[in-house]
Amino acid sequence: MTLSLVLLARMQSLLLLACHTALVVVTVPLWIGLLRWMMATMDGARSLPDPASYWRLLRRAWRQPGVRSAAGAQITAVAPWVALAAGLGAALLVPSFTLGMPGGDLSDLLAVGGLLEMGFLALVIVSLAAGLARPGQAGLRTAVRGIMIQPVLLLACAVLGMCLPDGTLAGLVRQAHVADMNIIRVPLALVAGALLLVGVTESSGPDSGPFTIMVEDLAGPDRAVAQYARDLLVVVWMMLARDLVWPESVMEPDILPRSWLVVSIAAAVGLWMLHMLVACGCVAAMQVFIVSGRRQAARRGGLALLCALMAGVLLFAGRGMG
């Protein structure tokens, strides 16, 4: 009896993991398309991009014959896939609509951030592999602009560690179901904003920006994978921010047997999509209104650090008042 229960629980967790992975993997181009559409709308562009066109772009890139620069070909052949694997590993750790997936206790913020950083660096290596000046310089510039991830991540982990003892996302969700989160919601929102500021660096369009220069030596499936991995990283950062701000909207698996299974899952998925839509809007507004223009990298890093520091101070002040 106990063995069958354990097996059932394992199967349930695997099923949830499969659903979560499929949901995230399939909807990545949709979120990125929406993000770009929102950015174009906020920017006042005359011709708005089709949110579904990004699917077609990826498909077209995938179907092209594979071509890569001979110099550094061995590295270019592997690095986009490494970025994809790192992004996928991070996506497995960040709960979307439910807990109870295998590896939930590994969802430490530092581990998730580290995996996302690894994916980011793998994409930078793609640009450096061929040794050409233009992509190499763009890659180095992107890497330098992304270095503020580390201090912000450390501060974010410290703030999350002050909020709850184990410092994992799963622990945060569990606490959100039993305690009032309103006291710490503002600091967590600030942490989420800081992570979005440093994590989501460039999403202005499919054919512009430094990322396009970074992958200009690639064609075919490798290029499609690099683009998809970059977008997956952005979506995981947004999922992370969403989980920090609205942790109570993530379901706990022990609820499932007691209620209507399909309805519960559908409601949780719907709530996740709604929150992701809001997150897309926030990121687009951040990109257009706050960190656009010259010196955006320095401003972005400074603002993110300020947000993280403010989160720590506010958390402490809130505790003192509470």
Binding site: A71, L121, A129, I149, Q150, A158, L309
Partner: peptide, 30 residues
């Protein structure tokens, strides 16, 4: 505490850049 974490994080970021530079110059390119 926050400032110590900030200083450590900045040092970590610079360290990461040094590693990227090493990979970029030694292992990548021609």
């Amino acid at each position: 505490l926050l400032l110590a974490l900030l200083a450590l994080g900045v040092g970590w970021a610079v360290r990461m850049l040094a590693l990227i530079r090493m990979v970029a110059v030694m292992l990548c390119g021609r």
